[in-house]
Simulated scan of single mutants.
Amino acid sequence: MDQVSFTQMKDGTAEDYALLERLEDQFNEGLVERLKLALRKLDDGLSGYKVSRLEHSLQSAARAEADGADDDLVVATLLHDLGDELAPYNHSQLAAAIIRPYVRAEVTWIIHHHGLFQKFYYGHFYGEDRNEREIYKDHPWYQKCVDFCERYDQAAFDPDYPTPPLEHFEPALRRVFARKPFDPDVIGEEPAGGFDSRV
């Protein structure tokens, strides 16, 4: 097996880092398969809802697709709860980190903040401020996140909704994750303030 010569990164050579870059590129070719595997794990996750987390994710993405959303938003919607298993208290930020190199900044912002915005529907039942999302009321993407939660996320717990299988979304996943990471022509610019660490 090919390995680098160093035991500390500071001692690496150009050849070492060329090797690592080649191996990383090969590994990253399997990203979509790993994402699909992670999504399938949501089928056995958190219980109590009328649908599994996987079905919720598929249904959310199907709703976005039916609404005419582009690949960025459909794929982001499919992956929006991917962090539930490993980061239950900041799942939104984990999902946003996964998509950030590949989609426009607006979509990453929506996914990053959807957990906070979603509290509008239930926060008051836990003694929390359901309107906490209002701290972003002047943000240019505020309404987009409100719409995401209303149309795609909170509405996607219906066992009777015609939900396509994961394979239906594979072409869009492959198109998005085949992009050059952090391509400024794709990502664009974030507005002042960027991503708030509070949510």
Rank of each mutant, 00 (worst) to 15 (best):
Y89C: 04
A96K: 01
D84H: 14
V103I: 08
D72V: 00
I98A: 08
V74Y: 00
A95Y: 01
A97P: 00
L78R: 00
E85Q: 14
R104P: 02
D70T: 04
H91G: 04
L73W: 06
E106C: 08
W109G: 05
E85K: 11
T108N: 03
H80C: 13
D71E: 10
V107H: 00
A95L: 05
L94N: 01
V74M: 07
L78S: 08
A69Y: 05
A69F: 06
P88E: 09
H91V: 09
D72W: 00
D81S: 13
W109Q: 07
E106F: 07
P101R: 07
D71P: 03
G83E: 09
V107R: 00
A105T: 12
A66Q: 15
Y102K: 07
R104Q: 09
I98S: 04
H80A: 11
V107F: 05
A69M: 14
N90R: 10
R104F: 05
H80G: 10
H91Q: 04
S92F: 07
V75Y: 04
L82V: 15
Y102G: 00
V75D: 06
V75L: 08
A95E: 02
A76F: 02
L73I: 10
H91R: 02
V107G: 02
L94V: 14
D84T: 15
T108D: 08
A105W: 08
P101M: 13
L78W: 04
I99D: 01
I99E: 00
D67Y: 11
D67I: 09
P101L: 14
D72E: 07
A69K: 03
N90K: 10
V75M: 03
S92E: 07
E106H: 03
N90F: 13
A87S: 13
H80D: 11
H80K: 04
W109N: 05
A66S: 15
R104S: 05
W109T: 03
L78G: 04
A76M: 01
A97C: 12
